[in-house]
Design a protein around this nucleic acid. Structure first.
Lengths: 121, 121
DNA sequence: TTGACAGGTGACCATGAGGTCACATATTGT
DNA sequence: ACAATATGTGACCTCATGGTCACCTGTCAA
């Protein structure tokens, strides 16, 4: 009974969409492109991804919209795409916190030190 | 050239595995089961997922292991599975921070207030 | 050693996701 | 009105994925 608002998806169903949307490298690249320059049109995004046709890009954008990771605004015949960080933040709040927060802080720090030393045993 | 250590996967390639591993609800459920009780055997995990055969569970576990989200230890003929939060933490560090941190804090708080009021207008 | 238990391997099938295209629909400038 | 631009739709193909199974390997205990 909630969830008409931007990223307020209904519990796990929405999480699933977000996870699945993020699971594809191309889609992450698209998000990245929007991170570099927000509000780009389909065409602009196509030009940044010559490895794929317009239709491919459109499908991916549809998935991202469906997950509310991207939000659109029409201006005449162009469709501008904007990053919406809310779902990612929610993922972090609901998920990452749960698993990672308790243990890991110290471990990742340790790992970084190990990685930068790189050759011990 | 790095990455022999637990979660120290090679940049985006590892991120991809983690994302893809997390993209499946069953696998998230498995992680959840390990969160409830760490160190479970394949059998134990199968009993918690009667909707699937042992082989299904094993395949999912393999994916999780591949993403270093689960780490194993053999004890005789049983294989114990342990949660490894490092990759999740790294995802948070590399990814979520990048997109979500700048904008969102205030927005999610706003949303929570909106969601709890729920009927304004 | 024998049998029961815990796990692993390769093949197999069905579905869905990524990707492309031929066509259809706005919208804009002239 | 007309053509060019910008996006949308449905069908289609292919391949990776989730899921199952028959069979093999290793381990424990009697």
């Amino acid at each position: 009974m909630r969830s008409h608002i931007v990223g307020a998806v209904d519990e796990s169903a929405g999480d699933d969409r977000v996870f699945k949307a993020l699971a594809d490298p191309t889609r992450r690249a698209l998000l990245d492109a929007l991170f570099v320059a927000d509000g780009q049109s389909v065409q602009a995004l196509c030009e940044r991804h010559p490895e794929m046709t317009r239709f491919g890009v459109m499908k991916h954008l549809a998935v991202l919209e469906d997950a509310h990771l991207v939000v659109v605004r029409r201006e005449g015949r162009v469709k501008r795409h904007f990053l919406n960080p809310v779902p990612i933040q929610q993922l972090s709040d609901r998920w990452i916190d749960k698993y990672a927060r308790p243990f890991t802080r110290a471990m990742t720090d340790l790992q970084r030190r190990l990685e930068s030393r790189e050759g011990s045993s």
